Simulated scan of single mutants.
Amino acid sequence: MNTNDNKKIIIDFDGTLAASFDLFIEAMRAAHIKYSFRNVEDDEIETFRHYSVWQILKFLGLPMYQVPTVTRYIRRYMAAKVKALPLASNWQETLQTLALDYELVILSSNSNQNIQTFLDQHELMCFSKIVSDVGLFGKVKAIRKLIKDNCWLNKDVFYIGDEIRDIKAAKKAKISSIAVTWGYNAEQALIPHQPDHVISNSNTLIEILQCAELKNEKQE
């Protein structure tokens, strides 16, 4: 991979890179039986996609003290089926193009093992780093640490995610946010939080990033 030291793309895993929403709902339903919180019915799934993390916890009636236990259970459940997960959107083609000019990093609350298994399954070797096991509300801290530890400039970093919390994390970390519409949160739920860009196909990224580069060059 030819890496340009000035260009960084952080990509969320579940829902953004991996089409894991259906498996997540399946895992949630299994966890509901084990831990006795509210189930997500078929006719509630679309409503569910409009909720923030806090609204989801309230909807499920899941207390904060149970969140780590339930998260571990869901992760283990999904681990058994991670090899069957498809890539979301047209990532295979997009990543091949982006890897020529950008350093690509995965940041996720999922486990390193699950992510690596998925990457191996799809023969994706274009990521320089995997930042895994990030807490449900720990993405801002993880992004800031990435930037500090690697001496990156905030203006050169893009964060791509599929949830409201991804947009909020990017804003708090003072980097550009790109929201995808094919993941956990619906497009109508993402837009009010004002991501810098909203895309419905990964190929759109290439044009967006090229425009951002031209803008940065003019400002310099």
Rank of each mutant, 00 (worst) to 15 (best):
N2I: 10
T3I: 15
I9P: 00
F13R: 00
T16L: 01
L17Y: 01
A18W: 00
A19R: 02
S20L: 01
F21S: 03
D22W: 12
F24S: 12
F24D: 02
F24E: 01
I25C: 06
A27G: 11
H32V: 00
H32C: 06
Y35E: 03
S36L: 10
S36F: 11
V40Q: 03
E41Y: 14
D42E: 15
D42V: 13
I45R: 14
E46L: 06
E46R: 04
T47I: 09
R49V: 12
W54V: 14
I56E: 10
K58P: 06
F59E: 09
F59V: 10
G61V: 08
M64N: 02
M64A: 03
Y65A: 04
Y65P: 00
Y65N: 10
V67D: 01
P68L: 00
V70I: 10
Y73L: 06
Y73F: 14
R75Y: 12
R76K: 15
Y77K: 05
M78V: 06
M78Y: 03
V82H: 03
V82E: 03
K83D: 15
W91Y: 05
Q92T: 10
E93S: 14
E93C: 08
T94S: 07
T94N: 02
L95M: 04
L95D: 03
Q96G: 14
A99M: 07
D101R: 15
Y102L: 06
Y102N: 04
E103S: 15
S108V: 00
S109H: 09
Q113F: 15
I115E: 05
I115A: 01
Q116P: 04
T117K: 09
F118R: 06
L119T: 07
L119Y: 02
L119V: 08
D120I: 02
M125F: 14
C126P: 00
S128W: 00
K129F: 00
K129S: 09
V131H: 03
V131P: 00
G135V: 01
L136M: 14
K139Q: 03
K141M: 12
K141H: 12
A142S: 13
I143A: 01
I143C: 05
R144T: 13
D149E: 15
N150D: 12
C151L: 14
C151V: 08
L153I: 05
L153V: 08
D156E: 13
V157H: 07
F158M: 08
D162R: 04
I167F: 10
A169R: 01
A170T: 05
A170S: 09
K172F: 09
K174V: 07
I175H: 04
I175D: 05
S176G: 10
S177H: 10
S177E: 08
S177N: 02
I178W: 00
I178C: 02
V180C: 11
T181G: 05
G183Q: 09
Y184P: 02
Y184N: 11
Y184D: 09
N185K: 13
N185G: 13
A186C: 08
E187A: 15
P192W: 13
H193M: 02
Q194G: 02
D196G: 08
V198Y: 04
V198M: 12
S200H: 13
S200Y: 08
N201Y: 11
N203I: 14
N203K: 12
N203W: 12
T204Q: 14
L205W: 06
E207P: 00
C211T: 14
L214I: 11
L214A: 12
L214M: 11
K218T: 11
Q219I: 15
E220F: 14
E220V: 13
